[in-house]
Design a protein around this nucleic acid. Structure first.
Lengths: 196, 196
DNA sequence: GTCTATACTTGGATAGAC
DNA sequence: GTCTATCCAAGTATAGAC
């Protein structure tokens, strides 16, 4: 949110529309109208509608992650910090999916977009986790046979894998919200195995 | 909700879609898919998309009015009953507008549809008000120089007029909800003048 | 009654004038 | 950079086969 002013206007307009109508039901005219631009002009700033959507979610995810990392610091125990962080970032996924207001039929179509978003925040997230783990090791809270950065990346993959599995298994019968409780439970048990 | 079973299926599907997407963003394919019919078949039961919408809102308004009339009975004082009824039916309008999830730009387009709905429930509403007034007169709570049925119709028009004025004055700057407090205040003062 | 085919309109996207 | 013109796909609506 510091680029070109028009670029930001489009993101703001897109955020507004996607939140109100969801991805499918938002038109480029909707966004253009709010941004004060002809819909054709949107293509000067973005490749297509999908890219606008990804940029909007990416922006909001950055804010969420920054906030989450701040909240994580509040926990006294490093183990609890790791668990809280990995758990909450799964829950975030639910919010974003809910924001798109898509029926199950359309969910498959947009899920890859989210993957692109999470791929782009990955380095930031892994770096944060790495620091957490290093602190834990320094405090003798636990130890690993591998470097902290490597373990952090594995934990990140673990969190994402459980998240995706939950989405897939919710499958055809999703009614608004995905139930991540089982994924979070699995995560909890795996963390106890990994962090010793 | 007792006509043709397919007819009702369409209403159910329409209700679902309009609530989720609003009028503009709902497609006939959306409704047809949910109702288990080809979109062309919808035209056997309804003249167009607008008619489906009106039928849906009409159905839901009937339910609302029945419920409102029931709630009204709970008030001990007839004056309070009249005031409560006329006030709440204005508030209902906000709900329905909100349900359609329309931007101000589109509101003008659909407002006539609501008028059609309210026109169709008018007789039922006026009849209810007439009974209230007759009861009040019989109890010597107040009296009129005109027949109760005539006064009831005037009160109905009054409520609708204030409602419409509130919609118009909210004009270009509406942000989600229309503020009916001023209309309700005016109604309150007028009622005190009329019901003596 | 329900569907396929089709006319016309709106939405996503590109080309090119300014 | 922003717009108009335009293409193609999807949406509203009608005509007509079954």
């Amino acid at each position: 949110m510091k680029d070109n002013p028009k670029h930001d206007e489009i993101l703001k307009a897109g955020s507004e529309c996607f939140a109100r109508f969801g991805f499918d039901k938002t038109t480029l005219d909707d966004i253009g109208r709010l941004a004060g631009l002809n819909k054709a002009s949107l293509y000067y700033y973005f490749k297509n509608k999908e890219e606008i959507f990804i940029a909007v979610v990416l922006e909001e995810t950055k804010t969420f992650i920054a906030d989450l990392q701040h909240k994580t610091q509040a926990f006294p125990d490093v183990r609890k910090q790791v668990k809280f962080y990995l758990t909450e970032r799964i829950r975030r996924y639910n919010e974003v999916i809910h924001l798109t207001k898509l029926s199950v039929d359309h969910l498959q179509k947009v899920e890859p977009m989210f993957d692109a978003v999470y791929e782009q925040t990955k380095s930031r997230e892994v770096a944060f986790l790495t620091e957490l783990l290093k602190k834990g090791v320094a405090d003798n809270a636990f130890s690993f046979s591998e470097p902290s950065a490597s373990v952090a990346e594995s934990l990140f993959f673990l969190s994402d894998a459980l998240k995706h599995e939950a989405v897939r298994s919710s499958g055809r019968f999703m009614t608004g919200e995905i139930d991540f409780s089982s994924a979070i439970e699995k995560l909890d048990r795996l963390l106890r195995l990994i962090i010793r």
